[in-house]
Design a protein around this nucleic acid. Structure first.
Lengths: 144, 144
DNA sequence: AGCCGAATTCGGAAGAATTCCGAAATCGGT
DNA sequence: ACCGATTTCGGAATTCTTCCGAATTCGGCT
């Protein structure tokens, strides 16, 4: 779930490089926001990011959090997912993967790749369309 | 895509029966709203439903559309899906199925069942969880 | 057919998440 | 250190949806 400190630093270094490669400024806000996601359990709302960085960065505004998250998604440093209630989560994992949702709590977690999900993207293509990606969401509830 | 007139009437009859079975009143608003979905291409937003019924029912309020759609989802007469922009679509198809999204236009359509999607729900279950359902969204764009 | 109580609808106000905007601050190349 | 472009700030605006009290409608009962 959570990443270890070494992995986080590694990702921060890559992120720094990515910003430069894209010709974007390496600002404190971007670093802090990106780090918040890496230190999280994996998925945060904009509001949660704002809360997470507030202690050390009390003037970092919510609108900056939104703008920054949008930028980071654009450059591929983060991914974005929309929950069924319409709220958005930012996801530190950018590679293709699927999600599991606890129906009762709304908690989202990543599914490991496995044989349980087999998608043949080529044969899914509608006439005249090119498939770009496919995402699976699995819904379940805790046994009690 | 669109249903023929006969099928629509058949569904209206079933819907009538369902309302009664659930002990709900058979109101003009419910009939008109349900019909709007049946006569559509399959997926409408609340706003679109309101627009569709406005001509013949100019006083049918938007808040009634929202309340009614919610009720119809609860009794299983309609399904609800959330698009990536956070907006909600109401779906006249209630059985389990997957969706195709045109990335450029946002247009949603239903995918037919096929061998291209194979989900083994049992083996997807996390420890201590029971899987309820799984949904696939396929994203593509029109070739040009 | 008319009455009554509960469910439903109405219309507008309120709420929540996100986006927008002009002004101020910051970054990074020179 | 300077300058211009980018980024951030803070608040207002927007959009979609929900909520609320009052008025209406449905349907069981007589």
């Amino acid at each position: 779930m959570k990443l270890n400190a070494h992995e986080i630093e590694h990702r921060l270094a890559d992120f720094n490089e990515l910003l430069r490669a894209k010709g974007l400024k390496v600002t404190q806000q971007r670093l802090v926001i990106f780090r918040a996601l890496q230190e999280s359990h994996g998925h945060l709302t904009a509001e949660q990011v704002h809360g997470a960085v507030a202690k050390d960065n009390p003037t970092l505004s919510l609108s900056t959090v939104y703008a920054t998250l949008e930028t980071l998604v654009e450059i591929g440093a983060l991914a974005e997912i929309t929950m069924d209630d319409g709220k958005k989560l930012f996801d530190r994992t950018t590679s293709a993967h699927h999600h599991f949702v606890d129906i009762d709590t709304g908690a989202v977690s990543d599914l490991e790749d496995s044989d349980a999900i087999k998608l043949d993207l080529k044969s899914l293509a509608r006439k005249g369309y090119v498939i770009e990606k496919a995402r699976v969401t699995v819904y379940g509830r805790a046994k009690k």
